[in-house]
Each structure stands twice: as structure tokens, then as C-alpha cells.
């Protein structure tokens, strides 16, 4: 029983990391029809920003950790803003390939810059004592850091849903997901919404970076790459452009990955998640929550 609970929580917490990345990609894709490869690198940048803040502040404390998370989130958003304004914006009219290439170019440059400054090796993430502790749930020992990651993802999901449902920008984003041309036709300046959505995705990725650094206790220049691939898988399983779909799919993918890794063989989790992707594609190509007929 306790193993079961622990595996579930561990799975949900890695699913939460996938969601932190997938949520941003989902709204960016929904509104802008752009697939950003730069967001994996934003996770890495966020992780390094968090580690840098923690080490600069000296003895790890809870306050310092909060600052580190804030710094990582802010850096993620800031870098995303720069990328959108300088690189992605001129490419909106140029088609998918050009957009992919500029975001990939940005990702390669960011990873290379991090590597040349910080070196290719792992950098350790110092954690405050409070986060090294565990709590007991249903007889299982759950690390606080895992619970924190899950809570962050749930909070982000709630916040995004509120943003989409209650704010004017959220309204434009929802309308844009349905029909971007119509929104433009109504005379609404969508380019500001575009920036906003890209920055939101960047903030979430930066936050995800800080929490990924907590999860693996370290960062490497290629940290974000794996998360990016799984965020894509989660998007397809959940249904492209559906935030709820991404949320559910991230949880499912994380949990079955942990279970397969534990009960079958280390590494089997990756294969099981891909098998799930294949099954979903064969039975429901639009994804669990995707709508039929939406042009992809």
C-alpha cells in the first residue's frame, strides 16, 4: 500500500513537471499555432537561475528558496518575452518550419551559452532543510518537494483556467483558439495577446525549471530536453490546444511511467508512455480531450 501511494505521488509530481511545460505550450499552440522548441531551454534556464540564486544566498533557507523560485519564474518569462519579440514575431506569417527553426535556434544558443558559462557537468541544487523532510500520508513517506511540485501544478492549472475564463485577455485567447482570423477581423490587437501568452508560457517553464531542479537535485545544460519531449507527448495524448487534456494526460503519463519503472524495469516507463501515445493515436487521433475537425 505505502509503495503504491509513494509511486502514485512520485508519478503525479513528475506529471506536474510535464504539465508546467505543457500548459504553456498548449496555450501558445492554441492561440499562435506555434510549436515552441525554446521552452525546453527555458526550463533549463529556470533551473540554473534557481540554483544560482540559492548558492548566492548562502545557507539554504525557506525564504531563499521562495526567492529562487520567483527568480526562476521571472527569468523564464523575461527570456520568453525577448524570444517572442525578436525571433518569433517576425515569423508568424512564415509557416511552421521557419517558426520551428527560430525557436530551435534559440534553444541551441541558450543551451550552448549555459554550457560555456557553467560547464557541461551537473550543478548541484542546495535545498533548505524544510524541503528535505517527508510527510506521512496513508502510511507512505512522501518527500515535501514532491508534494510542492504537485501543488504548484494544480495552482497553475487553476490560475490559467481563471485567467482564460475571467479576464479580457483570456477571452481574446479563447476566441483566438477558436478562430484567430475572426478575432483580428474584429479589430482586436492580437499581437499583445500573443506576447502575453508567450510570456505566460515562459513563466510556467521557468517555474517548472526551478521545481525540476528540486526534483532531480541538480541541473545539466540538457535538463529541459527530456521534459520538452514528454510535454509534447502529453499535449498529443490530451488533445492539442486543450488545457484540461494536458492536465489529465500529464498526470496519467507521470503515474504510469513511475509504475512501469518500478514494477517492470528502469526505463520501461518511457516505453509504456510511448505505447500509450500510439494507442491514443490509433483510437482517438484528436487526443483524449481534443475536438474533431480542429485544424492542427
Amino acid at each position: 500500500m505505502d509503495t503504491f501511494v509513494l509511486l502514485t505521488v512520485a508519478g503525479l509530481s513528475i506529471g506536474a513537471l510535464y504539465y508546467l511545460l505543457a500548459s504553456g505550450l498548449s496555450i501558445i499552440f492554441g492561440l499562435l499555432d506555434v510549436l515552441s522548441f525554446a521552452h525546453g531551454a527555458l526550463v533549463t534556464v529556470g533551473a540554473y537561475a534557481a540554483i544560482e540564486t540559492m548558492t548566492r544566498l548562502g545557507t539554504p533557507s525557506l525564504l531563499g528558496f521562495l526567492l529562487a523560485v520567483l527568480a526562476a519564474t521571472a527569468v523564464g518569462g523575461l527570456v520568453a518575452y525577448v524570444i517572442e519579440r525578436l525571433l518569433v514575431r517576425p515569423m508568424y506569417s512564415r509557416g511552421h518550419l521557419a517558426q520551428l527553426l527560430v525557436t530551435m535556434g534559440a534553444a541551441l544558443i541558450m543551451a550552448a551559452l549555459i554550457e560555456s558559462v557553467k560547464g557541461p557537468d551537473e550543478v548541484h541544487m542546495p535545498l533548505p532543510k524544510a524541503l528535505e523532510k517527508s510527510i506521512h500520508i496513508f502510511g507512505a513517506v512522501i518527500p515535501v518537494s514532491m508534494a510542492l511540485t504537485i501543488l504548484a501544478a494544480i495552482a497553475l492549472h487553476g490560475g490559467l483556467l481563471l485567467f482564460l475564463a475571467r479576464t479580457r485577455h483570456g477571452l481574446i485567447v479563447r476566441a483566438g483558439v477558436d478562430n484567430a482570423d475572426m478575432v483580428r477581423g474584429l479589430g482586436i490587437d492580437v499581437s499583445r495577446s500573443f506576447s502575453l501568452v508567450f510570456v505566460l508560457g515562459g513563466l510556467a517553464a521557468g517555474l517548472g525549471g526551478a521545481l525540476a531542479a528540486v526534483y532531480v537535485r541538480a541541473a545539466t545544460p540538457s535538463l529541459g530536453d527530456t521534459y520538452l519531449v514528454y510535454a509534447f507527448i502529453v499535449l498529443i495524448i490530451g488533445g492539442l490546444g486543450s488545457l484540461r487534456g494536458a492536465f489529465v494526460a500529464a498526470a496519467i503519463a507521470g503515474v504510469i511511467q513511475q509504475f512501469a519503472n518500478y514494477y517492470v524495469k528502469a526505463g520501461a516507463g518511457d516505453i509504456v508512455v510511448l505505447a500509450l501515445l500510439v494507442v491514443v493515436l490509433l483510437l482517438r487521433p484528436q487526443g483524449l480531450f481534443g475536438r474533431v475537425g480542429r485544424s492542427v
Binding site: 499555432d33 510549436l35 511552421h96 507527448i233 498529443i236 501515445l277 492542427v296
Partner: peptide
Amino acid sequence: VSLRVEGLAYAMVTLAFLE
């Protein structure tokens, strides 16, 4: 399997196979 989806979704599925 992968050609059941088009465009960017196809790109993502092929990336999953690469993984």
C-alpha cells in the same frame, strides 16, 4: 501510426519515436 495526425502533431509524434 504517426500519419494519423498532420502538421505539428505529426512532428511531435515523430519526436516521440526518436525519444
